[in-house]
Each structure stands twice: as structure tokens, then as C-alpha cells.
Design a protein around this nucleic acid. Sequence first.
DNA 1: CGATGTTCGCGGGCAACTAG
DNA 2: CTAGTTGCCCGCGAACATCG
Length: 479
Amino acid sequence: MKISNDNTIPNLINNNIDMFNNEHDNQRYFTKIAVLNICTLTEYKLNNIFDYIRKNGIDIMGITETQKTDKEIKFFNADKTGYKIISHNDNKNAIGKGVMLLIQNNLEKHIFNIEKINGRILIIDLAFRNNKKLRLILFYNLANHSTSVDINNKIDINTHVIKQIKKAKSQKMEIICFGDFNLQYRRFKKRQDNKQSIPKMLKIFQKLEDFNLWDVHKETYDMDNTKERMTYFGHFNTRIDYIWISENLFTKTSKAKIMNIRDIIKTDHALLTFDFINEDLIYPILQTKKLNMTNKHLIRNIFDFDNTEDEDLLNFQDDLKKVANFFDSNGSIEEKWSFFKTNLLKVKQQHIRYKEFVVNIDNGKTFQHIQLYKDLRYIVYLRRKFKKKLSFEKIALNWINYNKYLKHLVKRNSLEEINSTYLLLQHRISQFLIGQYVKELNEIYDALFSKFSLNMFNLKNEKIKEAIDKRCADLADNQ
DNA sequence: CGATGTTCGCGGGCAACTAG
DNA sequence: CTAGTTGCCCGCGAACATCG
């Protein structure tokens, strides 16, 4: 098991934020996710669920098999305080289908995209600061697969899910894929271990693993080596409910549980929960984008015939002739190309020396990516937030994080003259001093700007000098 | 929702001008 | 000479747009 070495430890900063909102102690630090097959939703059950999630501080709760239309759920008389309901079902034929998501109000406003498929899949995309995105995929698969039609439908649902995961991966989103899969991992594993062919239905597990998603409960309980924990208690007890999450989330997971809450809510499934440290996801420390240092110079290899020994050149020609005999002039253009790539290039690399050639990326065009410019933009961004009432409140709440970053920024640009300003020393900020804060931000801005323009000036001069030098060299060569 | 980019109108600052 | 007027430029922020 590979885990990246990001050992995020709870720190003082976040504890302070907790104190700020003293409602639930850990709420701000951990985000809790749960999923339950409700086995037909009723008004009574819904109220019980709300009661339960409020008590346990669950942020996002997935419910499967509601068997109720969106309208019916809308008119349930339930105390929804603090949460929003997003339900989805096939409104013509709601039986045996229906998924629903209960999401905390302060997370709900981060939603920027909702997709609903076949009354069985509910996809919700959330966006957070710093280009962090999270995709929730809640799904409830067909329960029976006795007929070939059912099997095909089941596979169809699976492919939908896989497609959406693929899309999310390509957009670098974190993924939580959870729900009642109605498929047993155990069966997949057995087939795989015995090197038997895997039924199409079960291939979804293969895909999930290929996408580097983790079955959080399997890993937490170490089910591969110990006894399996069941999630469904019917004629046979089986494990068919899962929460699969992307690697980054998995590394930040603190707890994962399979719980029996059947004495509170009547259903034949267990409740699955897990929580993760949300520090870098939902309440991040503000940062501007990091510079991509690896791409600063493009290194290309160029063959250097002039400096290659004569002997090697002769060998090269001999080998080339030998290889050329295998060339198929009737082949397609792709075949010819791959022939060239695999054979000729190989021979060339064997005999001919090559030198490294560094391609400089034009700095003038990439000035927007230098740290100084980013910092400059950051000040503008911060100043704007200060001036707006709503965003000011947000800043006030998270001031310690902003303050920390601002201090970093000042230090990074070694703006000594700014170091002792009022703004940087405050642990709390007051709305009555906004004018003062903006003034000080302007000071920082001015200092940064003068540095920036100096930088640009130097850069420009360098380029001019470069151009002149080059011309001189050309001139000398020509004479 | 958040990040980023773009457009556009407003007002301050400044210079040139003008009326008293 | 001075106080007020006009016109212009520029920077800023609000608002809008776009993407994911």
C-alpha cells in the first residue's frame, strides 16, 4: 500500500478556527460522510435520519433505495434545519430506485454541477478554494440480476459510473463513489485470485482499482486478511455497500466504520461512515499557484554528427543498410513511421553522439507565472475582499490563515519596511478598521509593484542586451 | 462556488484654459 | 493673478463572463 508522505497533523491554526465556531468541536476539521440503504423512505425514517446526522455531525449523507419520487420527498414533513435535500428518482417508475443526498448548508453552496442518471445515479460536483474540486457519485444498482436484461442494465449503470469517474480524474477532482453496488467484492477477488475470467458485472471493481480508488472500509478493517464485515442482512448476509474514495482523500481519512443502526432506523442494511481531514480541501490555507520548476527549461537531444568518430559513422551506415532491408515499402504510413521510429532511431542512438540542447522558454511571455506577479495579484485580490462586506466576514473568520500567508508573502519578498505594520500583527480584525487595512495593503502593493517593475526593467534590458550580443556575433561570423 | 479574465463607467488628478 | 471650468487620461472596482 502506497501512501504519499503528506503527514498532515492537526495544528494550532485549525484548533483556533474550531474555537471560533464552538458548535461542533471537530466539525470544521473533519468532514464526515455516510451512506445507507434505507429500504423505502418514509417521513418517519427521514426525521430519524436528520436526527441522527445532526447528533453525529455528518456533513454529507447518501441514501439509496428511497423508492419515492422527488415530489413525495419534497412534501415530507421533516425538520431539515442545517441541511439540504437533493433527491433523484425516475418519477414515472420509482419502485426499486431512488437516490438522495443530504448535504450540510455550508457545503451545499459549493455545488456547481448536479447530474442525474436513470433514477439510480446522482452526481454532485463541489468547488473549493485553490481549484480543489470534489465529485460525489452516489449510486444504487439493480438488486436482481436473474435475467439477461437485468444484467445488461446493471452493466450499463456500471459503465455510467466508470465514465463519470474517468471524467473526474481527468479534471483532477477528488472522488467519493458510494452507495449500494449490489455486487460482492468477495466474488471479484476470488475470481481474480484464481485467475478465472471476471464476469462483466464485477469488472467495475477492477476499474475502480485501476483508477486508484480505495475501498475505505476494506482497508480500515483489513478485510483482505481478516473476516469480511457485512453490510446487508437478508436471507444471506453479504457485503454490497461501499465507499470508494480517491487516494488523496484516503490518506486523510481518520476513521471508517460499518455500523448497525437498525434499532434507530428500520432497514436491512448497515450504515457506512468515514471522515477525512478537510484542511487542504474545504478550508485551505490560501496559496497562489506553485511554479512549475521542472518545465522551466526544455531539454532536447540533438545528434552531433560532427563530433562522432569515423569508425562509429561507418558502423552506423552498415547497420542502417542491414535494417533498411526489412523496410516494407508497401506498408501504410503508420507502419512506415513506426518502422522508422523503432529501427532507424535505435541504430542512430547506438552509434551517433548527441548533445543536450537547452531550450529557453521566453521569459517575457511567462512573467505572469513568476511568484512576484502572483503575489501582486494576491494583494489585489485580498484588498478587494476587504472592501466587500460579505467577503470581509469570510476573511475575518479565517483571518489567521490569511495572516499567516500574508506574513509569508512579506517575508518571501523581503519587504522589511512593511514588516511591522498593524495588519500583520493582528490576530483578529475589526470591520471598523477596514480603511486602515486597505491603506496598509496598498503600502504592500506599492512596495511589491516597485520591485516588480524593477524586475521587468531588468528583464527587458537583458533581452535587449542579448539581442545586441547575438547580432554582434552574427556580424563577426559573416566577416 | 472559486479562480481568472474582460469590459466599462466613475472619479481623482492633472493640465490647459478662462472669466473676473 | 487666482479661482473656477473643462477635457483628458488613468487606475480602480463593479459587474459580467467563462471555465471547471
